[in-house]
């Protein structure tokens, strides 16, 4: 009987330790859902920036070969317009995220920061933002 109790107690302890390490969102000093949404958009914009940069870098030879000077200049101008639009939204969003993260991080110790970030990343992943 005694060994059964010890076994059960050990089982409860193990079960309590293997719970999802992601903390309840309510425990963080920030609107977690809003932060997830902001980060998700920032990830989308980051991907768009890299894709836009790659579109010029990887296709440069074919673009130049297929266009005369005037068309190429127009292409470059269009590229700049797309780039600037992306940058404008990215910069505004970056300021918002930076300020919110600053508020959160100043309240947490190193270990809690990691737990917070892990929680945020896990949520982003669950929502398809990677």
């Amino acid at each position: 009987m005694k060994s059964l109790k010890i076994f059960l107690l050990a089982g409860i302890l193990v079960a309590s330790c293997t719970n999802d390490p992601v903390e309840e969102q309510d425990s963080w000093p920030v609107d977690f859902d809003a932060l997830v949404a902001l980060n998700c958009r920032a990830i989308e914009l980051r991907k768009a920036r890299f894709a836009t940069a790659d579109s010029l870098r990887l296709d440069m030879d074919s673009i130049k070969a297929s266009m005369n000077q005037s068309d190429f200049e127009k292409y470059q101008n269009d590229f700049e317009t797309r780039k600037n639009a992306l940058l404008s939204e990215s910069n505004a969003l970056a300021d918002t995220i930076r300020l919110r993260m600053k508020g959160v991080m100043s309240d947490l110790g190193p270990d809690r920061k990691r737990v917070f970030n892990d929680s945020l990343q896990a949520t982003l992943k669950r929502e398809g933002c990677e």
Binding site: A42, L93, M101, Q121
Partner: peptide, 16 residues
């Protein structure tokens, strides 16, 4: 021990 969040604002995952 720290988590680099400096690039999070630009859509990157923080790095430990």
């Amino acid at each position: 021990t720290f988590t680099d969040i400096s690039q999070q604002q630009y859509g990157f995952t923080p790095r430990n």
